[in-house]
Amino acid sequence: MKKLPFWPTLIVGIAIAVMIGLGVWQMQRMAWKEALLAEYASAADRPAISWPQVPDPDALPLYRRSGVTCLEVTGWRSSSGRSASGAAGWVHIASCRTGAEGPGAQVVAGWSQRPGDPAWRGGPVSGVIAPDSTHLIRLVASPPVAGLGPVQKPSPEDIPNNHWAYAVQWFLFAAIAAVIYGLAVARRTRSPSSA
């Protein structure tokens, strides 16, 4: 019986161990994400908070009610989005100056069928804190401002929790690697030895 080749066996063994480790890590992240989503789901029932001047990336107050005074709109961006009734259109986001200190605030002013900038120039606004890919958080105005329509309400249900699928994927990769390597070794042991 031929001995297992040392280096290929070591490399494949390390690769399989890494893939299993990644699968376990994804399962741990799944538990963390489920706890985070449960916290976000309960946020709507908690009291309103002050708008955070500098949000903590590790403890974002997502889905909490809040308010801010937009002293001046310094810019607009529009992105495709849906109204509260599900109609496709444009969501209008104002960059607001909130005072001399801090980075200001991003305010989702509302929804319309056209991408042009709304006439709103600022003022007090209240709503729900939602995630923002560029600025970490933004305030979704409720009610909307400047004659705009309401946007689709931000919900923690929109946050994906794919960690179980990723864990299964890593475990399958590990199993496939083990099977393929086992077949390769079996084929090598059955082949006639060279003289």
Rank of each mutant, 00 (worst) to 15 (best):
W32S: 12
C70G: 05
V185N: 10
Q53H: 12
D56C: 14
G99M: 13
P144F: 04
P154K: 04
A177H: 08
A31E: 14
V185D: 04
G23W: 05
A43K: 02
W164L: 14
Q113K: 12
A174S: 13
R114P: 01
D45S: 15
A195E: 12
W90T: 01
E39V: 10
P115K: 05
P124Y: 14
S95D: 15
L10R: 08
N162L: 09
R46Q: 15
Q28E: 14
R187P: 15
V68M: 08
Q113F: 14
R121G: 09
Q26D: 05
V68G: 00
S112Y: 09
S85R: 00
E157N: 13
V24Y: 15
G123I: 08
A35Q: 10
D117G: 04
I176R: 05
A59W: 12
G104S: 03
S50R: 14
A44I: 10
R188C: 11
D158T: 13
P156Y: 03
T134E: 06
Q152N: 13
G67H: 15
L62A: 02
A17Y: 09
A141M: 02
P124G: 13
T74M: 07
M1C: 08
P144T: 02
S126H: 08
G127M: 03
L36R: 11
A35F: 08
A15G: 07
K3G: 13
P47C: 11
R190W: 09
N161Q: 07
S66C: 06
R82V: 05
A31R: 15
W90D: 00
A178F: 14
R121E: 14
V108I: 12
L37Y: 01
A100N: 10
V107K: 02
V168F: 15
S142G: 15
T189S: 12
G89H: 04
P156M: 04
M27V: 09
A167H: 04
D158K: 11
L60T: 07
E39K: 12
V125Y: 02
A48G: 07
G149K: 00
K153Q: 11
I180G: 08
T98R: 11
E39M: 11
G86H: 01
R77W: 04
V107E: 10
F173C: 02
V125E: 03
Y181N: 07
G127Q: 06
E34R: 15
Q152L: 05
S95E: 15
I14A: 14
A88H: 03
R121Y: 12
S85F: 00
P131K: 06
Y63D: 01
A48T: 11
F171T: 05
G123Y: 12
S83M: 00
A178P: 14
S191N: 09
R82Y: 04
W170R: 03
W7C: 07
L148Q: 03
P154C: 06
P8K: 06
H92S: 02
V73E: 04
S42T: 12
W51M: 08
V54A: 10
G89Q: 03
I93S: 00
A141L: 04
P52W: 00
S126G: 14
E39N: 12
W32Q: 13
K153G: 03
